[in-house]
């Protein structure tokens, strides 16, 4: 009797937390979990540690200096410019991608002919690497000796009689409006050379946003819209009060995906402008690479890396928390 009881109790507990299936599952994820623990979280920890040392030069030195490197980089005009550029790029890139993506999705959803063809056309740039995009758009936006002897897009404008549209594009050195604020070593405003870079990035990524919105639009039940129309709502009202709110989760996902691409952007800018003119299109990723591997200031490079990590985390972590909450609600 007693024996039977223990026998029945024991396996029951085993089922709850560890049976054969679970053991195999754990075994299967263990290698990747271990690899991620070491190569992602381990190295984040290492970078954080390095960023608080005085490691300069090729020989590692690990005297602890606290937040000195962070103070140094935040006090350089160059890093302040990088942060300004990052904000400008992210805001313009996100806004343009969302608006153009939504517009394209709505157009394609309106049952145009050859829908499949257009869908492929818009989404195709995403298949390219940012390196390719950067090189190609660098050629397009190289102004040449305009207005008389232009190249790229300026030449196109000149030959099609739209010469007045010629501009300096990636070589435009102005910052609009370029306010100077006491204590800041950079000018506040939109560096005009950043606009062509945003155009190239939007060209590449807006098709992706379109695809996301298209999936969202297809997921909205026709009955709800029909019911609204029966109640006398105009098409605009249907769009504004039914379609848009129901697309909100899609927008959020798109912002997160595009946002983390934008905050870590490196390859596109390296190939398209290299950060020029001056530092007008340079972002922290480029700065990190240059001071780490060219100037051998490893500790300052690590500090820039940590700042980038924190900025991306500020975007992603609230999203994860929000996601978890909505999942619990469901």
């Amino acid at each position: 009797m007693r024996q039977a009881k223990t026998l029945s109790a024991h396996p029951a507990r085993q089922v709850r937390w560890m049976n054969r299936d679970r053991a195999i599952a754990l075994l299967m994820i263990a290698p990747s979990a271990l690899a991620i623990a070491v190569f992602v979280y381990g190295f984040i920890g290492w970078t954080a540690y390095i960023s608080m040392t005085d490691w300069r030069g090729l020989m590692i030195t690990t005297s602890f200096v606290g937040f000195e490197n962070y103070l140094t980089i935040f006090n350089t005009g160059r890093f302040q410019t990088n942060i300004r550029n990052l904000i400008v790029f992210t805001v313009f890139f996100l806004a343009a991608c969302l608006i153009i993506g939504l517009l394209l999705a709505v157009l394609i959803d309106s049952r145009v002919r050859f829908e499949g063809f257009f869908r492929s056309v818009y989404i195709f740039p995403m298949a390219l690497s940012f390196i390719v995009t950067g090189v190609v758009w660098q050629w397009l936006f190289a102004p040449g000796n305009w207005p008389n002897d232009p190249t790229g897009i300026n030449l196109l404008f000149k030959q099609s009689g739209l010469g007045f549209l010629q501009a300096a594009w990636t070589t435009d050195t102005s910052v609009v409006p370029g306010w100077r604020i006491e204590g800041l070593r950079t000018r506040i405003g939109v560096p005009m050379a950043m606009i062509p870079v945003v155009v190239a990035a939007v060209w590449q990524m807006s098709g992706f946003v379109m695809a996301m919105y298209l999936a969202g639009l297809r997921g909205i039940p026709e009955e709800i819209k029909e019911a609204a129309r029966v109640d006398g709502a105009t098409e605009w009202q249907v769009f504004r009060t039914i379609t848009l709110p129901m697309l909100q989760p899609i927008t959020l996902s798109a912002v997160i995906i595009l946002g983390h691409i934008s905050l870590k952007i490196f390859d596109l800018i390296v190939t398209m402008t290299g950060g020029a003119p001056g530092n007008n299109t340079e972002v922290p990723g480029l700065y990190m690479y240059e001071i780490t591997f060219k100037a051998n200031k490893f500790a300052e490079g690590a500090a820039v890396a940590m700042v980038m990590l924190v900025v991306v985390a500020l975007l992603v972590v609230p999203y994860l928390i929000y996601n978890r909450r909505t999942e619990v609600e469901r």
Binding site: Q138, F141, A142, P143, G144, N145, W146, A168, W169, T170, T171, A193, T273, A276, P277
Partner: peptide, 8 residues
């Protein structure tokens, strides 16, 4: 010099 320095 040429004004499109940074693209050359």
């Amino acid at each position: 010099s040429n004004s499109d320095r940074s693209s050359l």
